[in-house]
Design a protein around this nucleic acid. Structure first.
Lengths: 251, 251
DNA sequence: ACAAAAGTGTTAAGATTACACCCATGT
DNA sequence: ACATGGGTGTAATCTTAACACTTTTGT
């Protein structure tokens, strides 16, 4: 049975703030790679970031949280606003009107929208990807093997990735991208994925342990091939303190 | 002769983007202190940051540039967007409606506005402060000796200051806050003002010179009491390269 | 001549880098 | 038994921090 697609009204609603949208870049970490959550628009080959409008009675942070809850099932997500995109002509409006005409009526597009970008850091395994009304697929994509993105979402994603790299030493990035218990090689591969370079494992371990932000547990990871690695967990208090005191200084 | 003040219409104009504003934190450096440019609202004791609305046909960066040009007379200004403020209730709306009722009619206020914050770095001496239609004074204030600010502008300012500190090692901050030719002690005092701590002059000079971002000129500063200090200028190419290669790492 | 700010070098401690072999486990 | 990834120490180099006196100039 063919799915019926109804154009949906999003412009001139009194309860939303006109010309303003939110886009979220959801980062996960899996198989030594950074992953991004993307949505595939119905009856197209186009993918986009999860996003939405801002309602009159919600803050922009709340709007971002609402979007993330709906797309990932997660309630308490680490979120950072990283940039607001306000060029007059952010992408080819006419082309997108045509591409998505079966989903959004021509007259419902704003001539111009300003978008506030957030990035989120989530534990890959606890996410349940969930498409929205415009999309029929929600999937993780490897940051270095992406499909073509709609709108200006490639630029937004690049900016988010750049911000993530800059903020690596000032935000609890490991804490939010890894599960509660993790191994030293996992943490190292996360840093390698973000910094895009190899790190010596002895030097890495020394540096991390010296800061005191992680604690080795009396436990090893089970069910892995080869030697069982120790498990670690973050010392949140210490982690926060180190971040406030000027960061970790990995380059 | 008493000045006549006419309420000015800023809501529901078709050419502006409703519910969206820009606020600018203009930093200067003078007398070893960071300074901020503030506007005094007519017939009040309230001060605010320079700001405005965004027009439909201009980008948000252009809007910020327009504001800065009007308030400082400067055309090419170093500008960084640092945060967008989108709480539902950013300040006491009713109180501000009353405070400024002689300037803005009650029904012209948005119930809610989202503000995009920019900070600007300018050469203190080349600025000609210039009030806008709502204000009758535009002045530099010491960052650590501020008047009470209207709206949520104290929070915006604090956030800008915090961003400035974090970005000190990644942005050409010295280049934009100092005149073309400057002395080593001036540069040091700028860093001390931003980092809020004393730095040893020998270590500071060594570190700065080693990076190669400044060049000593065959010239000393004239007309100063005591020993005449050498003048330096930035090597822009080298400066940019060092910033891209991971920053300067002052803490 | 004096006061005030500029200019400069050395040393010790700490941080970073480079580097290679053995260990534990699953197949 | 072997293949794979985990775990660990040391030495050399570089970076940072601590520290005090001389120079220059205007008053």
């Amino acid at each position: 049975m063919k799915e019926e697609i109804k154009p949906i009204k999003t412009k001139d609603e009194p309860n939303l703030i006109p010309h303003l949208t939110i886009d979220c870049v959801v980062f996960g970490f899996h198989d030594s790679n950074l992953k991004i959550l993307l949505l595939k628009w119905k009856n197209t080959k186009g993918w986009s970031l999860p996003g939405s409008v801002v309602m009159q009675e919600e803050s922009i942070d709340e709007a971002a949280k609402r979007i993330l809850k709906e797309r990932t099932g997660l309630k308490d997500i680490f979120l950072r606003q990283f940039h607001t995109f306000g060029e007059v002509k952010r992408y080819d409006l006419e082309r997108h009107r045509n591409l998505l005409s079966h989903l959004i009526e021509r007259n419902l597009w704003y001539e111009r929208a300003i978008s506030i970008g957030y990035y989120a850091l989530v534990d890959y395994k606890s996410v349940f990807p969930n498409p929205d009304e415009f999309t029929d697929d929600c999937e993780w994509w490897d940051l270095h093997d992406l499909p073509t993105l709609l709108f200006d979402h490639k630029q937004i994603l690049d900016k988010a990735h750049h911000s993530l790299r800059l903020e690596l030493n000032f935000q609890p990035i490991g804490y939010n991208l890894l599960p509660k218990k993790f191994t030293m090689p996992e943490l190292q591969r996360l840093y390698e994925a973000i910094l895009q370079k190899k790190i010596d494992p002895r030097n890495f371990q020394k540096k991390i342990l010296k800061t005191g932000v992680v604690t080795r547990l009396d436990e090893v990871k089970k069910g892995v091939a080869h030697r069982a690695p120790f498990l670690y967990s973050f010392d949140c208090k210490k982690y926060q303190q180190v971040l406030e005191d000027g960061g970790l200084f990995f380059t």
